[in-house]
Design a protein around this nucleic acid. Sequence first.
DNA 1: GGATGTCCTCAGCGGGCTCTCAGGTGCTTC
DNA 2: GAAGCACCTGAGAGCCCGCTGAGGACATCC
Lengths: 229, 229
Amino acid sequence: MPTNRAARIVVVDDEDNITFLLDATLRHFGYEVHVAKTGREALALVGEVDPDLVLLDVMLPDLDGFEVVRRLRFEGAQVPVLFLTARDTTGDMVRGLTLGGDGYIKKPFSMEEIVAQIKAMLRRNGHQTSTSKLGLADLEMDDDAHLVRRAGQVVDLSPTEYNLLRFLLVNAGRVLSREQILDHVWQYDFGGNSAVVETYISYLRKKIDSLGPPLIKTVRGVGYALRVE
Amino acid sequence: MPTNRAARIVVVDDEDNITFLLDATLRHFGYEVHVAKTGREALALVGEVDPDLVLLDVMLPDLDGFEVVRRLRFEGAQVPVLFLTARDTTGDMVRGLTLGGDGYIKKPFSMEEIVAQIKAMLRRNGHQTSTSKLGLADLEMDDDAHLVRRAGQVVDLSPTEYNLLRFLLVNAGRVLSREQILDHVWQYDFGGNSAVVETYISYLRKKIDSLGPPLIKTVRGVGYALRVE
DNA sequence: GGATGTCCTCAGCGGGCTCTCAGGTGCTTC
DNA sequence: GAAGCACCTGAGAGCCCGCTGAGGACATCC
């Protein structure tokens, strides 16, 4: 079972925008990334690099995602697959995706979402030693249960609040600009302005910082960070 | 008698969709899976891998399922067999199946159903140490008796309600998406939309949550989970 | 062939969530 | 200390999500 080396991820999508984004983001998180643009390319690439995870668009120019997985399994490959599905995927297309330990993500997604899913999946498959838990001081977050606690008390967060907090936690101690936050926490096609971030920071402060010494620090002119001392 | 190693299961069906699904699901649950597409292949495979259980479609291109079992028994193989029968199986066919002492499952089935049956059968044959009981707080479920109690009081559930509750119980504390639930609890050919899940959650709440503090938690934008605190 | 139970769809509604905006506050710089 | 800027936060519009009741389709049982 793999342990310390960087996990290898094969990304399969025919849209350059998507593969570019994913490539950059995943490399940033220390993964080794390989990109394919078609189903056949994907099959060859998986055989070649023996990845720990495959990110696979369901819509591909030649074979569809399901067919790719079918062939992979037929060849005996056990690699877990995370499907990327279009926004308006009909019910019966989604069906069957989450079986066998595979998962799916709806487009458009945010980087925070997809990284969280990837981590969860690698964890389940024994690649990472990390748990589903994140924490800082008396603040805890458990991704499996989707639960946040401060000083033992459960905090109820909306999806966006939750994703924002996780992004801050993952980067605890580092200052993050509004744009960085927007790029990671909001969906990649978000067109609004970065003032939303301020609003959500404010929400988080009300829910999190009110339960103890303030953790969310504003760095004037730069962005926000979680306190680490 | 087998003990700690993964149970070996031979799956025999000529439909690729079915074997694909079963292969993925059973591997996910930690079984070692071997697939055959015809009766003759099945006979050879069973001789080769000496499985702990055979999942056997009754309709096969060459020999039918009964014939396969007859030959297996003739050769002295004692392995338990779980039949997969077509939707429109006649009454005396079913009688034949139950007389043989092994079990059967009607197609289409749900993953939850088939995994439960497999576990029960392996348990009966001494392979697994797991019990048939599940529980959380004052909620108990006994698979052998097919009985659910909350605070000591028996709760009457429909089959789908029961399967849904079991899936939630098995994954207690973890948030499950509507699609995950659909893929595991509903039959594999279900084509409808995931709103059914909401309806059944609502049914369960009426029957289960009304008898004590609510156990079923909605995680907005994500899915459902059973409370664990 | 009626009664019952189960499954699923659908639509209405209530409320939570997201985002915008604007007025207010406090820091910074000269 | 005044001006200007960055940031904060309350209010509110619109949307979306999830809950549930009603009802139709279907199977099963008597």
